[in-house]
């Protein structure tokens, strides 16, 4: 189905037609039942998770990613239509480049490859303090190293305390501790900021 038609179909599916009052009419999907039914991850604590992979992408062949783990393990990762791809924001397969870092979760297949349910490309989670603020970028001190955080128009959001995320970054202050979720620019000390969490 062409993309505009597909989106129209999905939109009408969720907005059109009558909905079931889930919590009452669909007992099996009531919140408490859904939580109880939520999969318990069966894996010895501390053990390597076979359904997880991380590393740097070394090659792209069709919908297959070849990658080298940080521990030098070689990975083959299948990307399907059902795989979510995050690279600063939800994006498409063509945005993945050789050299990108990644974390991926999915199902390990018998041939040793991973069928990815989700892949997060270049994602970083930094606890840092703001050392300086310049036009469209933050200078961050992270573990004693300077990281440049780029503000991306229309993408970067700020969360102040427990308030809903906003696009307004003017309440960020030099000297404050922040948590930054962002996309690393490979082989640099720079990240594009997705969300910056700051105290109220």
């Amino acid at each position: 189905m062409p993309q505009p038609d597909r989106r129209r179909f999905l939109t009408s599916a969720v907005l059109g037609g009558s909905a079931v009052a889930g919590a009452t009419a669909l007992g099996s999907l009531a919140p408490e039942a859904a939580f109880a039914a939520a999969p318990k991850i069966k894996l010895d604590p501390g053990a390597l998770d076979p359904n997880f992979a991380e590393g740097r992408i070394t090659g792209i062949s069709g919908s297959l990613l070849k990658a080298s783990g940080s521990d030098r393990t070689l990975h083959r990762i299948h990307i399907t239509d059902g795989t979510s791809i995050w690279k600063l924001h939800p994006t498409t397969f063509d945005q993945i480049k050789v050299g990108d870092g990644f974390y991926a979760r999915g199902v390990r297949l018998p041939d040793g490859s991973l069928a990815a349910d989700a892949i997060w490309v270049n994602i970083v989670n930094l606890d840092a303090s703001i050392a300086a603020i310049e036009t469209a970028r933050l200078h961050l001190d992270h573990n004693g190293k300077r990281v440049i955080g780029h503000v991306v128009g229309g993408r970067t959001a700020a969360v102040y305390g427990s308030a809903p995320a906003v696009a307004d970054l003017t309440r960020l202050q030099v000297g404050r501790h922040v948590k930054v979720i962002g996309a690393w620019r490979p082989d640099t000390n720079e990240v594009d900021i997705a969300t910056v969490y700051s105290g109220a």
């Binding site: 991850i41 894996l43 010895d44 604590p45 501390g46 053990a47 390597l48 998770d49 997880f52 992979a53 991380e54 590393g55 740097r56 783990g69 940080s70 521990d71 870092g101 974390y103 270049n122 970083v124 930094l126 992270h142 573990n143 190293k145 990281v147 690393w184 490979p186 000390n189 990240v191």
Partner: peptide, 24 residues
Amino acid sequence: GSSWGPCGSAGGGACGTCNSGSHQ
């Protein structure tokens, strides 16, 4: 543990066994 990007120098943590791929 072994990692990439700004995490590259994270090391094995206080217990010496930490690894991004393990449930820890």
